[in-house]
Amino acid sequence: MLHLRILSPTDLTDEAVRILEEEPGVSGLVVLRGSVVRPPGDLVVADIAREAVNDVVEQLRATGLHHRGSIELDPVHAWLSRSGFDAELHTPGSSADTVVWAEVAQRSYEDTELNWTYLSFMSMATLLAGIAIVIDSQILTIGAMVLGPEFGAIAALGVALVRRRYVLLTLAIRTLVVGFVVAIAITAAAAVAGRILGWVTIDDITGSRPGTEFIYTPDRWSFIVAVIAAAAGVLSLTSSKLGGLSGVFISVTTVPAAGNIALGIVFGVGDVIWGSTLQLALNLSGMALAGWATLAFQQAVWSRVSVRRSRALDRLRRMI
């Protein structure tokens, strides 16, 4: 169940109310005329089954309401309502499987914003990865992978392609490229300082590293793991049942590969640079491809559900 809140210009309120009244997935509806100061208009509040949200939002967008007012969605974590239960029963599909595209798009734009917070987390994660490589620590490697914020931008690539949001695609690519470049540059500068102080030597980079050797030795499993992890991550982002996202962060070697590239550049170790770059490219391409494929499949499935809903509503209206 979701809570729908609309700030509507007065001339569009009746149309918005009509859309909500005709939707069987709406279990509660409140209209407060003249209660909104900015923008001047009315407040419309409704409780709606998650499965019905996409169709309702599309109809509201078609009126142009979002240009002059606002459409807001909030999850209802706990509710007791017979009418709400009936609304979910009358709406085809499962709430856990439903992708609320407005919610996904909003989160994608937020995750691809290139700001100091993103760059700080990216740089700190890559610095941790560099330290993990020097001391050959798997624990620190996992910590760096969890800390890295890049998955949101990678998932946004799939959202942009599936929903044809090309501005979002540009933002996601820019955020990924700038984020990795800045993180690698900062880690390389730290490696230079460590080399001058004698804390890091070339033997730390070229010597035996059984705990972190996988970072610069990609194989067929690297791509397969990236695909599976990204598909699971996208499902966690789009489903109402969150829980698998942290597993994605500790499955795919992106940030550690970036840290290894920085160390390889400072010490001039070509094999390390090439292997880590290939590992990074394999993981990023695998995750982007899997994210796109998962979202495309979800959109194709839900479009069929929407068609069934439309036909069912038409039959219901004719019966009335």
Rank of each mutant, 00 (worst) to 15 (best):
S310F: 06
A102L: 10
L60I: 11
G179F: 00
E88Y: 09
E21I: 03
I250P: 05
V146I: 14
D74V: 12
L168T: 10
A49P: 06
R50F: 09
L127M: 05
L12E: 08
T217A: 13
V227I: 14
R33Y: 14
T63W: 11
A185Q: 01
T217P: 08
P75E: 07
V301C: 08
L29F: 03
V266D: 04
L12H: 03
V181Q: 02
D11H: 14
D74W: 05
V26D: 00
A183D: 11
D86C: 03
A105I: 04
L171V: 08
G211S: 12
A312E: 14
A52F: 11
A296F: 14
I19N: 04
I135W: 10
T98I: 06
G244Q: 10
I215C: 03
I135P: 07
G233L: 10
S310Y: 11
G41C: 00
V36D: 03
D14Q: 09
Y118R: 01
V30G: 08
R317G: 07
S208W: 01
I184H: 08
W302A: 15
N283S: 14
L237N: 02
T277E: 05
I6Q: 00
G243V: 02
H66G: 04
G270P: 09
V26W: 06
I154Y: 11
L32D: 07
V146Q: 04
L161M: 15
H67K: 15
L7Y: 11
D204W: 03
F151G: 02
L295C: 13
H66P: 01
A188N: 05
L242C: 01
N54R: 12
L43M: 09
G268H: 14
H90R: 15
V177F: 15
P39R: 01
I273N: 09
R309N: 07
I273S: 08
V44H: 08
L242F: 09
V252A: 09
A132R: 06
P218D: 04
P256R: 07
V266Q: 04
V234Y: 02
G233R: 05
V146H: 08
V272M: 04
T63N: 10
F121T: 00
V17W: 07
V269Q: 02
Q138P: 04
A281C: 10
W221M: 14
D86I: 15
E150M: 01
A288I: 15
Q138L: 13
G93E: 12
